[in-house]
């Protein structure tokens, strides 16, 4: 292992712009040299801020140092850059599990498992979270469980997930998917074509499927994480006032974004045959439903 570190360090010194920092930081992390791993990962991240792997590795080291806030941001950054990043979904699943938000933990772990169906540890983690979600929810008995944690676990006594991010929708997690299904009840497209997400790009309710019927909700939510901020910025700087809606007509469908509340975004998707004006009306009705639902669960 020492030789590994020496070799990788020499390689990095020869070519500071190379991606070998990922290997070096990972080796140091596995050896438990977290300070050194963090320094290497942070340096690499500064050079490659658009590299999802760098964000994910940096986040993992932070998680192992007990910095849940930093880890959460890092894994979210990774997902913004690469919505299907397996390690980032796994890490977020771990953080939500530790925070007792089993619904979100399960969603992230299942997403991670799509990319690694043979990963026995991940399968075991999913089973464990499912089992915990069925009876009356209790705090995880063994928060550092290897099957769930992005090994090795962060210190159990430290709050890994910032409560401000974990708690608002705890009711949703505790009651399984029932409140989720109530969200758009009675609206056209309640099960497909309406998606409510938070400002961090996490799905709060609703669903979106592609033409093959596959659920693409989480991927689309991650892509949209920065859209409301970008829309607000453009509207403000162009003197358009506060942004109210964003309509996107596309080749194979039309989409409409509104912000039911300051920290949520609602996406409505319909076939291209639905005119943009009508889509706006559908979106407004869905936004009203979302506001009512958010008031109930908050």
């Amino acid at each position: 292992m020492n030789d590994d570190v020496r070799t990788l360090t020499a390689e990095l010194a020869r070519d500071p712009g190379s991606l070998v920092f990922l290997d070096l930081a990972e080796v140091l992390r596995r050896r438990g040299q977290l300070d050194a791993a963090l320094t290497v990962a942070a340096s690499g991240l500064a050079r490659y801020p658009a590299l999802a792997d760098a964000h994910a590795l940096h986040a993992r080291i932070l998680a192992e140092r007990g910095d849940g806030d930093g880890a959460f941001d890092g894994w979210m950054n990774a997902l913004q850059l690469e919505p299907s990043h397996q390690a980032a979904h796994r890490g977020l699943g771990f953080l939500y599990y530790r925070a007792g938000d089993l619904g979100r933990a399960l969603r992230h772990l299942e997403f991670a498992a799509q990319a690694a169906p043979e990963d026995a540890g991940l399968r075991a983690a999913i089973e464990r979270v499912r089992a915990a979600a069925v009876p009356a929810p209790e705090p995880p008995a063994h928060p550092g469980d290897e099957a769930v944690s992005p090994e090795p676990a962060a210190p159990a006594e430290r709050g890994v997930l910032p409560t401000s991010r974990a708690i608002p929708f705890a009711i949703d997690a505790e009651s399984g998917t029932s409140s989720d299904s109530e969200l758009f009840a009675g609206l056209d497209g309640a099960r497909d074509g309406l998606l409510l997400l938070d400002q961090h790009g996490l799905r709060l309710g609703g669903a979106l499927r592609d033409e093959d019927g596959a659920d693409v909700s989480d991927a689309v939510a991650a892509h949209l994480a920065g859209v409301s901020r970008e829309a607000a910025r453009a509207a403000r700087l162009l003197g358009l006032g506060a942004w109210q809606s964003l309509g996107i007509e596309c080749e194979y469908g039309n989409a409409h974004l509104v912000a039911p509340t300051a920290d949520t975004v609602l996406l409505t998707v319909r076939d291209v045959a639905v005119p943009a004006g009508r889509l706006g009306l559908v979106a407004e009705r869905a936004a009203q439903a979302a506001r009512r639902w958010l008031e109930r669960v908050a």
Partner: peptide
Amino acid sequence: GAGLGRPTVIQLRGETG
């Protein structure tokens, strides 16, 4: 990412424009 293909029209509506 949503399988909608490329955007053909984008419309950002604000309070005043």
